[in-house]
């Protein structure tokens, strides 16, 4: 049986994970254009880690409350890791929207500190004896595996995507203005805090939901690589956005296919495929620099 025939024969197995990967890639590749242009690449990594703290905290609080996560329906709604993840990520997004900074500590340093502290907290909580037994389950929720994706996560991704589309359809000009020139936007009466908060919260929700579906590495990569690849090839935002989305979708789909037939790690293969799209842009820049 050829590679593709074998892949096609297993479509019942890959249909939902592939769909999740493609949805996550499309959503993050779109938002990634703003992330890269606003020079907030590290914010997406920090948000991913901070949403992870939310998940780990939910399990920890559950264990303190004596809840067995393996018992069906045992976790009360308020202690669902999903909510904790979203709340933590959105709170961090709100904090980053306030443009925290100091003469000695730039905003990016504070984002970096958030990333470091969140990473350490996740490790510390996951290795706590209280939830050591659930560490594997927590790890799956934290970082996904892009191989098996529950339908609920696909729906969550679709909902996050719909929210992003609606928000950008309604407020695209404001989001663009405050992203490009916040000072002038503020002078002209556009609420910079409101729109930055809106954009950051959407990015936080997308990252939080996508991390659980496809894993931390592909999420970070989809937020940065397709947008960077598209930006190197275009000079027009109307071309950059669809090209970035296309790069993301192809990376997810082709990466999944290659990982299936070559039996490679799915998330990592998606990232490698996405990285290939950087090459035309790099070649273009090199050519421009040598002319």
């Amino acid at each position: 049986m050829s590679g593709f025939a074998e892949f096609w024969a297993g479509r019942e197995l890959w249909r939902e994970p592939l769909l999740a990967g493609v949805l996550a890639a499309a959503l993050l590749s779109y938002l990634g254009v703003f992330v890269v242009l606003r020079r907030m690449v590290f914010v997406s990594a920090a948000l991913s880690e901070i949403s992870g703290v939310g998940v780990a905290t939910a399990f920890y609080v559950g264990s303190v409350a004596g809840i067995d996560p393996h018992t069906h329906g045992a976790i009360p709604l308020l202690l669902e890791p999903v909510w904790f993840s979203l709340v933590f990520a959105c709170a961090a997004a709100a904090l980053f929207s306030l443009r925290p900074g100091h003469r000695k500590l730039a905003a990016e340093t504070i984002v970096g500190l958030g990333y470091i502290v969140a990473s350490a907290l996740v490790l510390a909580i996951l290795n706590s004896p209280r939830i050591a037994q659930e560490a594997h389950a927590v790890g799956d929720i934290l970082f996904g595996n892009a191989v098996t994706v529950p339908r609920a996560q696909i729906l969550a991704l679709a909902a996050a995507g719909a929210a992003a589309i609606v928000t950008h359809a309604l407020f695209f000009k404001e989001l663009l203005f405050v992203s490009y020139d916040p000072e002038t936007a503020m002078v002209q009466g556009v609420s910079v805090l409101r729109y930055e908060l809106l954009l950051n919260v959407i990015v936080a929700v997308a990252i939080s939901v996508a991390t659980r579906a496809v894993g931390a590495l592909p999420v970070f990569a989809f937020t940065v690589v397709p947008a960077a690849a598209a930006l190197m090839l275009t000079e027009n935002l109307r071309a950059t956005l669809p090209l970035s989305i296309a790069f993301g979708i192809v990376s997810a789909a082709l990466g999944y296919y290659l990982s299936w037939i070559e039996q490679l790690p799915t998330g990592a293969t998606m990232v490698v495929v996405a990285s290939v799209f950087l090459l035309p842009g790099v070649a273009r820049l090199a050519k421009r620099n040598t002319v």
Partner: peptide, 22 residues
């Protein structure tokens, strides 16, 4: 930024137009 000259000038119209309108 991948913006045209017209894109940048149009930003000046943002507050005149108000939200929810293109």
């Amino acid at each position: 930024w991948p913006l045209s000259v017209l894109d940048v000038v149009l930003m000046g119209r943002t507050s005149l137009l108000g939200p929810l309108r293109r």
